[in-house]
């Protein structure tokens, strides 16, 4: 019983990791964004990907935007200030 549960946990962990890697590789094939620095986008997405299904949904949405863009639908590209939001406003002693 204990053993089964352990195996299921391992299987689940392998599944989530493979899924995460698959999503990541799909994204690697996507075109590059402008090199504006927003410190939190990557960190946020890593966490969502690790959560499994939540990550799939979010990245699905993001990726869908790309697909629509490819077929000529309008994809919004707002300029982001290179100076803006380079650090969260909360760090202090």
């Amino acid at each position: 019983m204990q053993h089964d549960r352990g195996r299921r946990a391992i299987e689940r962990s392998i599944l989530v990791t493979s899924l995460a890697l698959a999503i990541w590789w799909v994204l690697v094939l996507a075109p590059r964004a402008e090199a504006y620095i927003d410190p939190s986008a990557g960190g946020m997405l890593v966490q969502l990907i690790l959560a499994g299904t939540a990550g799939v949904a979010v990245l699905g949405k993001l990726f869908w935007g790309r697909v629509k863009g490819f077929f000529g639908f309008r994809v919004r590209q707002d300029p982001v200030s290179p100076l803006g939001n380079t650090k969260p406003p909360h760090d202090r002693v």
Binding site: A33, D38, G42, M44, V58, N85
Partner: peptide
């Protein structure tokens, strides 16, 4: 992974925020 995602989505913070 974080560096890669950062590079892909750095300019799309609003989209990420909305999707998440």
């Amino acid at each position: 992974m974080q560096a890669q995602l950062e590079r892909r989505f750095a300019g799309r913070a609003e989209d990420v925020s909305k999707a998440a």
